[in-house]
Design a protein around this nucleic acid. Structure first.
Lengths: 248, 248
DNA sequence: TAGTGGTCTAGACCACTAT
DNA sequence: TAGTGGTCTAGACCACTAG
């Protein structure tokens, strides 16, 4: 201990900056308020714009900020809690789910990861149903539901598939099957171009990818890949007993 | 259609780069293989290093790559599926869970979000138990478990709290209570310095934050905040029926 | 058209790991 | 000590939004 020198912790500037900004957001800003632009902020803190942006990116990742090109940076509202797992297994499109059918097509191009779950071979035909989930005007999630054509009792004509009506048609066929169970995985991903558009984000935006496997008759009958905006969503996996106890 | 000009889509360079690299990873590299260093890669693709890094960051976020300072960039193995929700609610520390107790302390500083769930007031004493989850030598997750001192039947002396033994002591007290239910939320976060260290990542690394609320006697008795490495983990929420069917 | 965030460059230096 | 990824700079231009 021959020196009084404080332990030199070369904490990165952007990290320190993030902390400072985070505290400022708590104390001096309210939800929806617009921050100064990036050039001004960088100048105010005496750092390059790229460094400032690194801090802003982290805060956006944590759901504290919202940035929109051409508009500015605003203080984000708290994340929305989104119920992901219903109390009891149900098919997608069952009464009471929050999804809006968008369209449906028949195809044979299936992501490798999905094909593995469905145990389909290359070239097998599947219905692809696209849906979206919206609350209070804000798009929360986009979903692709894959159902092997062979898994449904009736074959749907290509003519009826277009648009939301087509999506309803496929979902309707599903309800006639008995659902034995389902399981889910959650992982981090980045939005593909198509999803990004639907989510009102730029391609590559961080998303929480929920993969749901529906089991019927001893085999996987459908797979849903739902991508939730990671900046605005908090996924909830409820236990109805616990919820009931606290609510009562 | 008066022009043969292809639609000019100014796809960002880093996005295109990411696609190219991603395909190369699929076809030309195997797990664990070392990529050329960033300066060489950037030169090879004719872009600035910062641009190349933007593409690598995305791929790392998606779990395709693993980068380590001073070492290099390697092709990551597929994400590990981590069971997050046991078939039936159990207290943390119950027989068979994968967590290793690290230590425990008594404190009155609780994150605001946790205090809200526990319905504790400022100054209320809580036990803070830290645990970690490891598979095959790789740290997967770090956890902070908060239990109000008032919620446990017996008061633990400060002396017994240090180290893993202290953690076991608190967890042991919990088992004596009846667990009515639990629920969980999953959201994206960035690793705090302490967690980052435990996870062998840099501060700010993306993590999946699982918040579990344990309900006993009609109130929230404990809250666990578990942070999983987002790059290496895929959280699974199993349905034992479905799993049993597929396994059989 | 003015102002915003998004992309990109060509450097520099630092922190860390392995030899 | 050499080589890696991590941080940082000071610019430039582009894509988008709104008045």
């Amino acid at each position: 201990m021959g020196t009084t020198q404080l332990e030199t912790v070369p904490e990165p500037k952007y990290w320190h900056l993030k902390t400072v900004l985070s505290e400022a957001l708590d104390s001096e800003f309210s939800v929806g308020e617009i921050l100064p632009n990036e050039r001004d902020l960088a100048a105010r803190f005496g750092v390059a714009r790229a460094t400032l942006r690194q801090a802003l990116e982290q805060l956006e990742l944590e759901g504290r900020l919202q940035r929109r090109r051409g508009v500015g940076t605003t203080v984000a509202p708290p994340r929305v809690g989104v119920a992901v797992a219903p109390a009891r297994p149900t098919w997608p499109g069952a009464a009471g789910d929050d999804w809006q059918p968008v369209d449906a097509v028949e195809t044979d191009t299936v992501p490798a990861a999905v094909a593995r779950l469905l145990e389909t071979a290359a070239g097998d035909r599947v219905y692809l149903v696209r849906r979206s989930r919206v609350t209070q005007g804000q798009p929360l999630a986009a979903e692709s539901l894959y159902v092997p054509v062979a898994a449904l009792p009736g074959r749907l004509e290509a003519g009826v598939l277009n648009g939301p009506a087509g999506a309803y048609a496929v979902l309707g066929e599903l309800q006639s099957l008995e659902l034995d169970g389902q399981d889910r995985t959650v992982e981090l991903g980045s939005a593909r171009a198509e999803d990004a558009k639907q989510l009102d984000r730029l391609p590559g935006a961080p998303v929480l990818v929920v993969t749901t496997r529906y089991v019927s008759g001893g085999r996987t009958t459908a797979v849903a890949v739902s991508t939730y905006r990671a900046d605005t969503c908090r996924l909830t996996f409820g236990d109805s007993d616990a919820v009931a106890l606290l609510a009562g």
